[in-house]
Design a protein around this nucleic acid. Structure first.
Lengths: 143, 143
DNA sequence: CTAAACCCTGTAGTCGCTACGGAGTCAAGC
DNA sequence: GCTTGACTCCGTAGCGACTACAGGGTTTAG
């Protein structure tokens, strides 16, 4: 009755790479599935759901450890979800910090871009890396 | 005359971890330095400068391979800096893409945050991971 | 002279996969 | 029954950018 999937079918169904599925099993994110006589893994619908959960978590930037924790929380129907909420908030903060980081990089890089000197020794871009000064700084050379 | 640095001094001077310096040497970013009779590395001021260049590149998010390329360009005084500029532009695009990515994550996570159900089975947060639906979706529960 | 601080090499761990090699298994067509 | 091709198995190694040992040798200050 219950439809069984081979690992290839599970991969197609869940959108998770086949080798990644085996990796998740080794990592303890997926339980060890039943096996056929010849040792082939056999999965059920619930595994598709679990894998999609994991995939979605990855798309949202959670680490595998965080996803493991979320899965454990989801499996405990009577535990409060405050912990899950805390995980989300921490993760949000990490993402915001990362965005700040990248925006700082972007701003600095934008200042460097557009140098078209014909000689590397006058390239404000390479100089900027050298000296932390940018084209627009006091002793800038014409570029 | 030329002040020589041990690896520890170079580390303090450049702000790059001592083990990382050795790693950069193995990776071909730093030339192999002179050695004392007992095998200790001896560095010069130019190495401090080179390491700072690398550090600055890392702060701007360049990969070690990209930094290697930039260093090569900086060492070629007569080559045009157009190549360096292209590297910077490509890197800028990658950063912008990454920011977009993170902002998408942030937006989705923000929708999930704030659930305070007392039971995981009603936690919109975990459900959202399960079903791709969020609290604010049609069948949202009071939270 | 001794102890602390430094340095050496080589190797293994992190994270989240991905890719291989070399084997065994299964289903379909002839 | 036999072949072919697609699938699966396992174990291991690679990526990038470090970081952290272990188990030694060296230098320096008191």
């Amino acid at each position: 009755m219950a439809k069984a999937f081979t690992i290839g079918a599970l991969s197609r169904e869940s959108g998770v790479n086949l080798e990644t599925i085996r990796f998740y099993e080794r990592s303890g994110l997926l339980p060890e599935p039943l096996r056929s006589a010849s040792g082939y893994r056999h999965y059920q619908a619930i595994d598709v759901r679990r894998l999609r959960f994991i995939r979605r978590g990855r798309e949202l930037g959670f680490s595998l450890e965080e996803i493991k924790a979320l899965l454990a929380l989801a499996g405990e129907p009577h535990s409060p979800c405050a912990q899950a909420d805390r995980l989300v908030h921490e993760h949000l903060q990490a993402i915001e910090a990362r965005i700040q980081d990248l925006q700082r990089m972007k701003a600095e890089l934008s200042k460097l871009a557009g140098c078209d000197s014909q000689q590397a020794e006058h390239c404000c871009l390479l100089e900027a890396l050298d000296s932390r000064e940018c084209c627009s700084a006091g002793d800038a050379r014409p570029s």
